[in-house]
Amino acid sequence: MALSILYALLPKGAILTAAKCAGSLILILVMLRPLVTLRVEDLAVPYDVWEERTAEQTEQLTQDNLSSMEALIEEECSAYISEKAAQLGVTVKAEVLCEVRDGVPFPAEVTLDIPYNEMLSDTIAADLDIPYERQHWQEN
C-alpha cells in the first residue's frame, strides 16, 4: 500500500524507475518471508519415526486384541467346567488361565475350589486339553 502511494506521488522519470525496482524487490522479499522463516523441521516426517510408531501401534493393538480374546476364552472355559461339574453333581468355581500359542490364546491351566475329582479331571484334560499336572485342586 505504501509503495503504491509512493508510485502515485513520484514524478515520472529516473526516480520513479528506481523506486519501482526497489519496490519490486521489497515486495518479493515480503512475499517470500513465510518460506524463509519456515522451520523445515516442523514439516519433516522422518521415516524411521513413522515406522517406529506404526510398529508400536501394531504391537499395542495386538496386545489389546489378545487380552480381550483371553478374557472371553477364560470365561467360556470356566463356564464349561462348571457345567460339566454340575452334570456330575458337583458345584465348582474354576479359574482358567490362557497361554498364547501361534498368536492364539489356548486354555493352559486351571485352579478349582474343590478337592480332586477324577471324572472331572479326565473331562478337563480331554475336552479342554489342560494336562493333569496343570490342574490345581483344593487340598482338604
Binding site: M69, E76, C77, V104, A126, D127, D129
Partner: peptide, 8 residues
C-alpha cells in the same frame, strides 16, 4: 481339540 476350537 473340538471343544476348545468351538470356544475360541
Amino acid at each position: 481339540v473340538p471343544v476348545v476350537g468351538g470356544i475360541i
